[in-house]
C-alpha cells in the first residue's frame, strides 16, 4: 500500500512523525479511515482508539479530543491526549473508572458532576480497551 506522511502532535510533544499506510481514528461521528490520496478533509475527534498501520504492523493508541486534518496529502492529527497502548497506565485508569462509577451511582450528584464523571468513565474505558491490545 502507498504510504503517506502523518504527524501526530499533542500538548505533551510530538508523538509520531513519519510514514504510515493507513490510519483509523474515531471522529465525533464514528471511525474515520485514512489512506494515501485522501481528499482534503477536517474532522473533530471523539474519544476512541486510533490504529496506525506502519510497515504492515498495526499500532494502537488511545486518542481523545482534538482534530484531524488532511491537506494536500499531508495528514496532521492534533489530539488533546494521545497514548500508545504500551504507555497507558492501567491502574490509574481503573482508579479513575471507580471514582467515576461512584459519582454516577450517587443519587445526590449534580448534573455537572455527572457529566464530568461520564466523560471520565468513557476515557477510562477507552484507555483500558486500548491497553489490552498492546
Amino acid at each position: 500500500m502507498t504510504p503517506f506522511s502523518l504527524k501526530i502532535v499533542t500538548p505533551d510533544g510530538l508523538k509520531y512523525d513519519g510514514q504510515v499506510q493507513e490510519l483509523v481514528v474515531r471522529s465525533t461521528t464514528g471511525d474515520l479511515g485514512i489512506m494515501a490520496g485522501h481528499i482534503n478533509c477536517v474532522a473533530p475527534l471523539g474519544m476512541g482508539q486510533a490504529m496506525l498501520l506502519i510497515d504492515g504492523n498495526k499500532r494502537y493508541a488511545a486518542c481523545i479530543g482534538g482534530m484531524i486534518s488532511v491537506l494536500d496529502g499531508k495528514v496532521t492529527l492534533v489530539p488533546t491526549t494521545f497514548e500508545w497502548a504500551d504507555e497507558i497506565d492501567v491502574d490509574r485508569s481503573e482508579r479513575s473508572e471507580e471514582r467515576a462509577r461512584a459519582v454516577l451511582a450517587d443519587k445526590a450528584s449534580n448534573t455537572t458532576d455527572i457529566r464530568l464523571a461520564e466523560a471520565r468513565l468513557k476515557r477510562a474505558l477507552v484507555r483500558q480497551g486500548v491497553a489490552e491490545r498492546k
Partner: peptide
C-alpha cells in the same frame, strides 16, 4: 482545493474552535 468537512463545516468549527482557543491558551 476544496476541503471536506466531516460531518459539516459548521459542526466542525463549533467543535474545533474551543479546542483551538484552549490550545492557544495552554501554549
Amino acid at each position: 482545493t476544496d476541503i471536506m468537512y466531516e460531518p459539516g463545516s459548521e459542526e466542525v468549527f463549533a467543535a474545533i474552535i474551543p479546542e483551538y482557543v484552549g490550545g492557544i491558551l495552554y501554549g
